[in-house]
Simulated scan of single mutants.
Amino acid sequence: MQAKVQWVGEEMFMGTSESGHSMLMDANGGNNAVSPLENILLSLGGCSSVDVVSILEKARQNIKDCVVEIDGTRVDTVPKLFSDIHLHFVITGTDVSEKHVARAVSLSADKYCSVALMLNASVNITHDFEIVEA
C-alpha cells in the first residue's frame, strides 16, 4: 500500500491514497481541514465501525445505525501523543442482543481492527457501547 502527501501552502497538505482518493489536512490544529491527529481518531473509528457492523450483520442482528463517539486524550509534553482513546459505540436497531454487540466490539478491538492493533502498543484504548431500540 502506498500514499503521497503534498504540501499545498501554509500549513495545508493534500494526502492521496493509492486508490486515488484525496484528503486535505491542516497542520494548524485543524482550523481549515482535518488535522493529522484528528485523522488518526477518524481512522480508528472507521476501522472499528467496519468490523462491528460486519460482525453484527453476520450474527443476523437487525441493526439500523452504528455511531462511534471517540475521545482522545493527549499528553501535555511535545510531542503531544495520545495517551488514551475511548470509543463509545451507539448501536441502533430492533431486538439487538447485548451479548452480540459486546462480542463485536471486543473482537474489533482485540483481533480485527488494524488501526487499533497498531496503536495498542503506545495508547490505552478502551471501549464501551449502548444499544438504542429503533
Score class of each variant (00 low, 15 high):
G29R: 11
A121K: 10
E133D: 15
I125M: 06
S17P: 01
F129V: 05
I125N: 03
V96S: 03
D26C: 12
M25K: 11
K111L: 05
D76S: 13
A109N: 03
T77I: 09
S48G: 05
G45E: 08
T92G: 10
I85Y: 10
L117T: 00
M118Q: 05
T92F: 01
V34P: 07
V101W: 01
S122C: 07
N31C: 06
T16G: 02
L24S: 13
L117F: 07
H86I: 01
V75K: 10
H100S: 09
M1N: 03
I131G: 02
F129Q: 04
M23L: 15
P79T: 07
V52I: 14
V78D: 11
F13E: 00
N120P: 03
S114G: 11
S54N: 07
T73F: 08
I91S: 06
S48R: 00
S122V: 09
D76F: 06
I125H: 03
L37S: 15
V78P: 09
N32L: 15
V75D: 14
R103F: 14
D76L: 08
A104G: 02
E10D: 14
M25P: 04
F129M: 05
G15A: 15
L107F: 03
E69M: 00
V78A: 06
V101I: 07
K64F: 02
N62S: 09
A121W: 03
V90P: 07
L56G: 01
S108G: 05
S54G: 05
C47W: 07
L37Q: 14
S83H: 07
E11M: 13
S106L: 06
G9K: 00
M23V: 15
I131D: 02
D128T: 03
L119A: 06
D71W: 00
I131W: 01
V132G: 09
L24F: 13
I70K: 04
N28L: 12
V34E: 12
T126V: 02
Q61G: 07
L24I: 13
S108C: 05
K64G: 14
A104N: 01
N39A: 15
N39P: 04
H21C: 04
L56A: 08
L41F: 08
D51Q: 02
K4E: 15
G9A: 12
V105C: 03
T94A: 12
I131E: 01
E98G: 10
G45P: 08
I125Q: 08
T77N: 12
P79I: 03
L42D: 09
L117E: 05
K80Y: 09
L117N: 02
R103H: 14
V67W: 04
E130G: 10
N39D: 13
S19H: 10
I91Y: 09
S48C: 11
C47M: 07
D71I: 00
A134P: 10
M14R: 15
E98K: 06
H100T: 04
N39G: 13
Q2R: 14
G45Y: 09
V5E: 01
L24K: 15
I55N: 00
V96D: 02
G46N: 08
Q2G: 12
V78H: 12
T16N: 04
V96H: 02
V75N: 14
